[in-house]
Amino acid sequence: MGNSSSMLTQYDIEEVQQHCNNAFSQQEIVSLYERFCQLDRSGGGFVSAEEFLSVPEFAVNPLSQRLLRMVDGLNFKEFVAFLSAFSPRATLQQKIEFIFKVYDSDGNGKVTFNDMLDVLRDLTGQFISEKQRTQVLTQVLEEAGYTKESLLVLSDFVKILGSSGLKMEVEVPVD
């Protein structure tokens, strides 16, 4: 898959579509490929963290530094898989798995109280104190049946977020 939309074959489109569990239509995949090529300024077939930061919405996201660890060096297929969690066609399970990866920054399959506190700190900045963050997080965990000492795994996130009506969607403009 080269660096121009004319190099994206029907086979490539179908392969990417299958890889992302049909989260995007073929037309959306073509649009995503065009956007990927715009981001891939070096033309190397991968998008770097710096290239991702050229997207204003990404750069101002309070979680951008966490997300950069997930996106640095993605090829097109991985780029679409990353974005598939934001598709309206993505399942709740796919969305929760994505959120879990954001919290599990070291990739060990477990999320600690401090991991959650770090994300909350990223999201709230200076708007609330560290004491308030700790209190809020402790209360949320207790209401869900966990403690500060709990190590949460993916199934815990599914249990906690599974009935939340979680909305994470991005519209892919198509020509």
Rank of each mutant, 00 (worst) to 15 (best):
G44P: 00
Q27M: 08
Q126H: 10
S48C: 05
S87T: 10
Q139F: 04
K77F: 07
L32M: 13
V172H: 10
Q135V: 03
C20M: 03
V60S: 14
D40T: 07
D40Y: 08
Y11C: 05
S64V: 14
E15G: 00
S48G: 04
R121S: 12
S54W: 06
I99M: 10
E14P: 00
L32I: 07
E78N: 10
I29G: 03
F82L: 09
E78Q: 15
R121Q: 10
F100L: 07
F36D: 07
L123S: 04
F58Y: 13
F79L: 09
A81S: 15
Q94N: 13
L74K: 08
S48A: 06
V172L: 12
Q126N: 13
V174Y: 02
G125P: 01
L39S: 08
V158W: 00
E15C: 07
E143W: 02
E130H: 09
L67P: 03
T124V: 06
L152R: 03
T9Y: 11
S105N: 05
S87G: 11
V153L: 01
F100Q: 02
G73P: 02
R89K: 14
L68I: 14
L137G: 02
M168A: 13
S25T: 15
N3D: 09
Q10D: 09
S25F: 09
G44D: 15
R89L: 13
V102D: 03
F76G: 00
R41S: 15
I160R: 02
F76A: 04
Y33I: 01
Q135N: 13
Y103S: 05
L74N: 12
A59V: 05
E149M: 08
F82I: 04
F100Y: 05
G43W: 14
F86G: 06
E169N: 14
Q135W: 04
I96F: 02
N22V: 02
V136N: 06
D175M: 08
D122M: 12
V80P: 01
F86Q: 09
K131L: 07
L151K: 10
D122T: 06
T147D: 00
E78R: 10
D122G: 04
F36Y: 15
N22E: 12
F157T: 09
Y11F: 12
Q10A: 09
N108E: 07
V170F: 14
E14L: 14
G125Y: 03
E14S: 12
N3F: 06
D72A: 11
Y11Q: 14
T124R: 05
V102C: 05
N75E: 11
